[in-house]
């Protein structure tokens, strides 16, 4: 083997190496064009309270430009202690509050503009936390200690006050479950491509929750609320 051969091979090899790097670099770079998922200037996002905001003053029925107190209707209506569907002005309400299935679990049977504790004590609407606490003791305790519910202001009470929201600000008393809300836009990626995880859940529970049971047999009619006995 002459050294002349070696030099030629050597030069060829170095050349091939450099050319290879160029090709690699160019091929890989062509696939990396910036792709902004989130446009830089976007309309300001709504950081307001959310859909469960409720008035904190006394309960009034607003109709045709007038505000009515409960007693204005209930003065001449008779009391019905049975669990029932809402009618009349309450048609827009739904009662989905766990075991609470009558109006008078919370509302006073005669003092319509007030609430009632299980003890029979009459309390005003704006004192509703005491009523809620009667059943939801542990959550009431968390709320009292700052571990439940929305807060604003100062963690350091010596520096300033804290405003704590009452139960009904977030929870509709008739349907206390927190309502689904629209999420703010996803963060996006600045460059490159983002890939979503598989649709198939990775956990057993995730799989089970995705499972769609077969439809019930046709002869079983749904139970109707007004037909059940008190």
């Amino acid at each position: 083997m002459s050294s002349h051969d070696g030099l030629f091979n050597g030069a060829l090899a170095v050349g091939a190496g450099l050319a290879g790097y160029l090709v690699l670099a160019l091929v890989m770079s062509s696939a990396a064009e910036p792709k902004n998922v989130r446009a830089p200037a976007e309309e300001p996002v709504n950081l307001d309270f959310g859909p469960n905001e409720r008035r904190q003053d006394e309960v009034l029925l607003h109709k045709a430009g007038f505000a009515y107190e409960c007693i204005e209707c209930h003065a001449w209506q008779t009391r019905n202690p049975a669990p029932r569907r809402f009618i009349g002005e309450h048609l827009l309400m739904n009662l989905e509050h766990g075991a609470v299935n009558t109006c008078f679990t919370c509302h006073h049977p005669t003092e319509y503009s007030s609430l009632t504790l299980p003890s029979g004590e009459i309390i005003p609407y704006n004192d509703h936390v005491r009523l809620c606490a009667g059943c939801h003791g542990p959550i009431y305790k968390d709320w009292r200690n700052g571990a439940h519910g929305r807060r604003e202001g100062y963690w350091d009470r010596s520096a300033g006050p804290v405003s704590r929201t009452d139960c009904i600000i977030c929870h509709d008393p008739h349907q206390p479950a927190f309502k689904p809300i629209a999420p703010l836009p996803p963060p996006g990626v600045a460059r490159g491509e983002a890939f979503a995880p598989p649709e198939e859940p990775s956990t057993v529970l995730g799989q089970v929750l995705k499972y769609v049971p077969p439809p019930p047999p046709p002869d079983r009619a749904p139970v109707r609320l007004e037909e059940t006995e008190p």
């Binding site: 836009p185 996803p186 859940p201």
Partner: peptide, 17 residues
């Protein structure tokens, strides 16, 4: 996914209604 704390399958770009 409910049922675990698997970060490897967490979805960062979720955007449902």
């Amino acid at each position: 996914d409910k049922g675990g704390v698997n970060l490897e399958t967490a979805n960062h770009q979720y955007d449902p209604e």
